[in-house]
Nucleic acid binder design. Structure first.
Length: 853
RNA sequence: GGCGGCUUGGCGGAAUUGGUAGACGCGCUCGACUCAAAAUCGAGUUCUAACGAGUGUGGGUUCGAGUCCCACAGCCGCUACCA
């Protein structure tokens, strides 16, 4: 389409307004310390999940959330709030490094180019960000504070008594030794089996493994010395404090399940002179434990295995270590295992039970050992059936005790939490809950075990062997780590000639020998931090982005915080971050809170997840399916306002919904209608329409529709129900279109309502109509309740709940009046023929229902 | 297997939270303008010739159910031997 045939000249005015907002810093947010800052204004902090600036640019999913927050931000501004609505880039990450490997070019160069492209795209959509607060996690000044926060974590331990982080200096003062302190730091070094990819030259987090495997990279399990963060100490608080947040219940549940709290007991079994501790959530079934299984990697395996079984056990261990997770999980539901030759003593009844190793028991959860109760656990049942082990029923679903051990109905009925203990000595006859408590008491008083709460959550594997990340601000001296002095921050990685992974688990930075080796003999830590680190605190930096003395000033932190537990008022982003980013950020924030660096316990008060936008074919957008929509193309063809409006009109923000290019045309047509209310074309030139007149008020019906629209749009924005707000504005526009004269003042009110959604078009019309101040600088309109009143209403008359007639009546009609009107209706009496009236239900102003038979 | 979400016309979706099902938009049909087309404007559009039926299916509560309760099914997402 050529410009001349566009329904409205967005190609001229959209860039024009964008340039003006830029030049005038229209959306500059003033904070403590800024000239002209007004501390009496209420604050509103609305945040987007910042993007990873990939080479392929924005996709249409980004503007979905970003438009929603932009509407909220612009609306709150017009309502008189001091709105913080910033944008930045999560710019560290593997793709940048992979690019460096391919080209030998420093990732900073490609990252800068990608950021520039993202910024251009974001600006082309007219978002009202305060660009003076723009940050990238790769900025040296940002890296400085990421490293500084790491040092705070490194310098802290978790005090179990107060359930919060404290500086390790307090332990030093109490006379703890260096080694003792290193044992309890929140950031610590440990040997752990990790996922290592020789092709990528790095270890990966559990959750990253599948992604890279799918891209044909090899990933294997290896024990390596790694930095870990003690997030497990915060498990309970991370669960409990979810209740203080206004998040979708589904996301809260996802986090709770991820943390995975379960209550149960540790039970000690002796194997000869050794003791093996198991964890169980069903101590009440201890009498039913007929064998024990320990993880193949369990350190005691070699010590307890008998000579006869040694060969078989070692062969099995070897087979397991080369198995990938997939083999161990998904693809291999068949149980496997080997008898160790050893026997353990069941502490409740002194029975000898065989000890097996099997890969269905994981070293990383609980104690890496279980007591197997095949009658009441599905996995144990399968295993026992496979290897013909004893199955002993100790819970029955009711009072009758069956004797058919291999009856699967027992299994299903009695694996529930609501059975009755049988064959269990002192537990006999007790319901499951009581049996559990009784058993734990018995274990504790006989020193055979104790109550224990277990979490699925593991400590956070925090080091990567990549180049393109924040180096650890850590020096090694005589085999011990210590913090780099704050004055040496930021510590930046040196450029390298060669970014290629070596194929060994040595971090890439090891190649920078001059950088690694310090003159005094100390060595730099060569691991880098994971990409999550930057996103753990970026919302704090936005409040005070250029501060070189602190990560955020006390004043800025105080101002952008209120009495709510979470700092950010509204956080919008995709569900994919439900557990990782959102959990890690909460964890860091809580540490900073404990250390007195921030005053709220939580980062994000309200969270909204935008639903994914699918391709036109209803499939997830992907290059291979060829159904990807590029926002740049939509902007070129229909304009930024159309794209914004369409994405908001598609359906509820949270819902998954398919793209329809015809729908974009629809909203574009709507914007054209708005344009033509005010503008008309004369000899190819748009000029102010004669329809807009400077009269006090136009048509009375139009006035009522306008006030209904003011009411609904305001309410809908508050509810984030943008699609219905837009449909109301369409109704209002149709009303304007259908009358001869539109009052300038009324149309200007309408433009204010539409402004947060379609800022370019509305500002342009407003300016064309002679408006001086920009709409975005004006105040949000209020509606006149008087204008909404209707004198006549439609009363629905039903017979037995079925609609039979609609009557126009006075809005104040009472039951008697309604009755008279209803029975006067022929359509109604037709359905009452030969029936007796049993009941009348009258809902004033709405319904008159006659029940008859 | 577990957890979560969704299911309303040809399509995207509305429905004051238990009170007129299908707002608004797309598509389609007809009409106006035009030599013609596009654009625009106007009328219509759940199904059915009609009686009626109708919000994934089956039951229930209620004067009244898309909305509440019970059971089931189908799609989508996340997760996966967590003891």
């Amino acid at each position: 389409m050529s410009d001349a045939r566009k329904p409205f000249p967005f190609r001229e005015f959209e860039p024009k307004w964008q340039a003006r907002w830029d030049a005038e810093k229209t959306f500059r947010t003033l904070g403590p310390g800024d000239v002209g800052f007004d501390a009496t204004k209420p604050k509103y902090y609305v945040l987007d999940m910042f993007p990873y600036p990939s080479g392929s640019g924005l996709h249409v999913g980004h503007p979905e959330g970003y438009t929603a927050t932009d509407i909220i931000g612009r609306y709150k501004r017009m309502k008189g709030f001091n709105v913080l609505h910033p944008m930045g880039y999560d710019a560290f990450g593997l793709p940048g490094e992979q690019y460096a490997i391919k080209t030998g070019q420093h990732p900073a160069i490609s990252t800068a180019a990608n950021i520039e492209n993202f910024r251009r795209q974001l600006k082309s959509l007219g978002f009202g960000y305060d660009w003076d607060r723009e940050i990238a996690t790769t900025d040296p000044e940002y890296v400085r504070w990421t490293q500084w926060i790491f040092l705070q974590i490194y310098g802290s331990y978790f005090d179990e008594k107060t359930n919060r982080a404290r500086p390790v200096a307090e332990l030093e003062a109490k006379g703890w030794t260096r080694d003792q302190i290193d044992e309890v730091r929140l950031a610590f070094v440990a040997d752990t089996p990790v996922w290592w990819s020789p092709d990528l030259g790095t270890v990966l987090a559990n959750e990253e493994v599948e992604e890279w495997k799918a891209k044909d990279f090899t990933v294997e399990r290896r024990p390596l010395r790694q930095w870990m963060l003690r997030i497990t100490k915060y498990a309970q608080r991370l669960i409990d404090e979810l209740d203080t947040l206004d998040w979708p219940e589904g996301i809260k549940l996802l986090q709770k399940n991820w943390i995975g709290r379960s209550e149960g007991a540790e039970v000690d079994f002796s194997i000869g002179v050794k003791t093996v501790t198991v964890f169980t959530t069903r101590p009440d079934t201890l009498f039913g434990a007929t064998y024990m299984v320990i993880a193949p990697e369990h350190p005691l395996v070699s010590e307890i295995t008998t000579a006869e079984q040694k060969a078989a056990v070692e062969a099995y261990q070897k087979a397991c270590s080369s198995k990938s997770d997939m083999d161990r999980g998904d693809l291999n539901k068949d149980k496997s295992g080997v008898f160790t030759g050893a026997y353990a003593i069941n502490p409740v009844n002194e029975e000898k039970i065989p000890v097996w190793i099997a890969d269905y028991v994981m070293m990383g959860y609980g104690t890496g050992a279980i007591m197997a109760v095949p009658a009441h656990d599905e996995r144990d049942w399968e295993f026992a059936c496979r290897f013909d082990l004893e199955i002993k029923v100790v819970v029955s679903p009711n009072d009758s005790m069956g004797s058919v051990y291999h009856d699967p109905t027992y299994l299903t009925a009695a694996t529930t939490e609501h059975g009755i203990a049988r064959n269990s000595g002192f537990l006999d006859g007790l319901p499951t809950a009581e049996a559990k408590a009784t058993m734990i008491d018995w274990l504790e008083s006989n020193s055979k075990g104790k109550r224990r709460v277990q979490y699925k959550l593991r400590d956070w594997l925090f080091s990567r062997q990549r180049y393109w990340g924040e180096p650890f601000p850590i020096l090694w001296k005589n085999g011990k780590h210590e913090a780099l002095p704050e004055s040496e921050l930021p510590l930046l990685a040196p450029p390298l000639e060669d970014y290629k992974p070596s194929g060994t688990p040595e971090p890439i930075l090891t190649k920078a020998t001059d950088w690694v080796q310090l003159p005094d003999g100390s060595i730099r830590e060569t691991n880098t931090m994971p990409q999550w680190s930057g996103s753990c605190w970026y919302y704090l930096r936005y409040c005070d982005p250029t501060n070189s003395n602190r990560f955020i000033s006390k004043e800025a932190e105080a101002y952008w915080t209120d009495e709510k537990p979470g700092m950010v008022d509204l956080y919008v982003g995709g569900t994919e971050h439900a557990v990782l980013h959102l959990l890690y950020a909460r964890f860091w924030h809580k540490i900073l809170f404990d250390l007195g660096q921030v005053r709220t316990p939580e980062p994000f008060q309200k969270l909204v997840n935008q639903g994914m936008i699918l391709g036109e074919d209803g499939q997830k957008m992907s290059k291979s399916l060829g159904n990807v929509v590029n926002p740049d193309d939509v902007v070129t063809e229909y304009g930024a306002d159309s794209l914004r409006l369409y994405e908001m009109f598609m359906g509820p923000l949270e819902q998954v919904k398919p793209w329809q290019m015809k729908g974009v045309e629809g909203v574009s047509r709507f914007l054209a209608r708005v344009w033509r209310v005010a503008m008309e074309e004369q000899d190819g030139v748009w000029q102010r329409s004669a329809k807009i007149q400077d009269v006090p008020s136009g048509d009375a019906e139009v006035r009522r529709t306008l006030h209904e629209t003011i009411k609904k749009v305001g309410e809908d924005i508050e509810k984030l129900s943008f699609n219905t707000a837009i449909s109301q504005m369409m109704i209002c526009t149709n009303a304007f279109t259908q009358v001869e004269v539109v009052a300038l003042q009324e149309f200007t009110i309408f433009l204010k309502l539409l402004n947060p959604f379609a800022p370019h078009l509305t500002e342009e019309i407003h300016a064309q109509l002679g408006g001086g101040t920009m709409l975005s600088e004006m105040t949000w309109p209020t509606y006149d309740p008087e204008a909404l009143i209707r004198n006549e209403i439609e009363l629905v008359v039903q017979v037995n709940g079925k609609l039979r007639d609609r009557l126009m009546v006075s809005k104040d009609i009472d039951e008697e009046g309604a009755k008279a009107a209803a029975f006067a209706s022929a359509k109604v009496s037709e359905h009452l023929d030969g029936k007796t009236i049993r009941k009348i239900v009258f809902i004033p102003g709405k319904i008159f229902n006659i029940v008859a038979n």
